Computed example of a mutant assay.
Amino acid sequence: MRKVLLTILALFALSLPASAKIVDYIVAVVNGEPILYSELVDYAKENRIPDLRAARDSLIEKKILLTEAKEEGLTVSDKEVEEALKDFMKQGGFKTEEELKRALKAEGLTLEDVKEKIREQLLVAKLIARKVKSKVKVTDLEVEKVCRKEKSSSVREVYYIFTKDKGKAEKALEVLKAGVPFEKVAKEYSEDPITAKKGGYLGEVRKGTLIKPLDIAVWSTEPGRFNLVQTKDGYFIVYVKSQKSKGCDREKIRRELYMKKFQETLKAFIDELKKKASVKVYI
C-alpha cells in the first residue's frame, strides 16, 4: 500500500513538508510568487528529477501555467475535485477517505494537500484544453499522406547465388530453369559461404539498400522469379521470393500525428508564456 501511495503522490506532484534542518530561501520568483528551496527539493524528489536546475525549470513552467489559467478566469469546482479524488483513491486502492487519511498521515501529508494539488492539475488541464488541444487538428489528407508513404515502403524477401565464374553462373541458371529449388542450387553453386548454407537467403530488403546493380535487379524482377546480374565482383543470380507491403492503420497514424502536433503546440504555447512572464531566478 505504501509503494502504491508514493507512486500516486508522485503522479499528482504533492508537496512534502520541508525538513526542519533545511535553511529556506527563495530560489526564484514567478509572476510575483516565490519558489522556496524546500519546495524545489521536494518537487525534484517527487518527480524524480536528479538535477535541481532541471527541476527548477519544470517548476517554473508549472507556476507560469497556473498563473495563466487564473488570468484566463478558469476555475475548478469542489465537485470536480471530489470526482478526481475518487479516481485518485481508486488508483491507490483506497476504499474510504479515512483509509486514505491514515496513509497520508504516515507520510506527513493531509487530505487537503491532495485536494489542492488535484485542483492545480485540473486547472492546468483546463488551460491546455482551451489553448492547446482546441488548436490541434489532424486532417484525413494528412493521414492518407502518411499511409501512402508507409504502403510504398515495401520489402522483398531476397535470395542469391554468387560466383566469380561466368560459366558456373550460367550452369546454375540452367539448373534453376530445369525446376530445381533455388535453395538447393544455392547450397551447391554459391561461393558466398554465409548465404550458401542458408540456401542463398539474404533477408528482407528495402529499395536502395543494396549496391546499385543488385538493387536494380531485385526491384526489376517480379516476385517468384530470378535474374542474372553481373557486377565488378562477379555474377549474382538474384531470386525474389516474395514482396510484403506494410499495412496502413489509419487510426494509429491519426493518434501519432495528433500527439506530435500536440507536443509541438504545447511547447510553442509554453514558450510564449515564458516570454511574457516575470521570472527572476536566483540559483
Rank of each mutant, 00 (worst) to 15 (best):
P34H: 11
Y160C: 07
S134K: 15
V136D: 05
E144H: 13
T163I: 08
K135G: 08
E272N: 10
T265W: 03
T221R: 01
E256K: 15
A178M: 14
C248Y: 03
E150G: 14
K275G: 09
K197I: 14
K86S: 15
V124M: 07
K198L: 15
R56H: 12
E222H: 10
D51Q: 12
A28T: 09
V30G: 00
I283G: 07
L16K: 06
N47K: 15
P50N: 09
T75S: 12
L127R: 05
E107D: 00
I216Y: 12
K276Q: 13
E251F: 01
E264C: 14
G167C: 12
S242Y: 06
G224T: 04
D165P: 06
I211M: 12
A54H: 14
P181V: 11
Y282A: 09
K184A: 11
K90V: 07
V185W: 02
G93W: 02
R225S: 13
A125I: 00
K86P: 03
K177L: 13
A20S: 05
K115M: 01
L14N: 11
A186S: 06
E251Q: 08
V143Y: 00
E68G: 02
K133L: 07
P213E: 10
T163F: 07
G73W: 13
K135V: 09
L36R: 12
L11W: 06
L127E: 03
K198Y: 11
D192Y: 02
E83R: 15
A129G: 09
E256Y: 03
R254H: 03
K241R: 08
K164P: 05
A103Y: 00
E251Y: 04
I194Q: 07
S15W: 11
S153D: 13
T7H: 12
M89A: 01
K187Y: 09
R156Q: 12
N31M: 02
K241Y: 03
L210E: 07
E174M: 14
V229L: 10
L74G: 13
G200D: 01
V138M: 07
I35E: 03
A69R: 01
K131T: 01
G208T: 13
A18S: 07
Q263P: 04
G108H: 02
Y258P: 06
E107H: 00
K212C: 13
G199N: 04
G234M: 00
L16R: 10
T139E: 09
K115R: 12
L173S: 10
V229A: 04
Y189W: 08
K184P: 03
R156Y: 07
D249H: 07
D51S: 12
I216V: 14
S15I: 15
Y43H: 06
T265D: 03
Y235N: 07
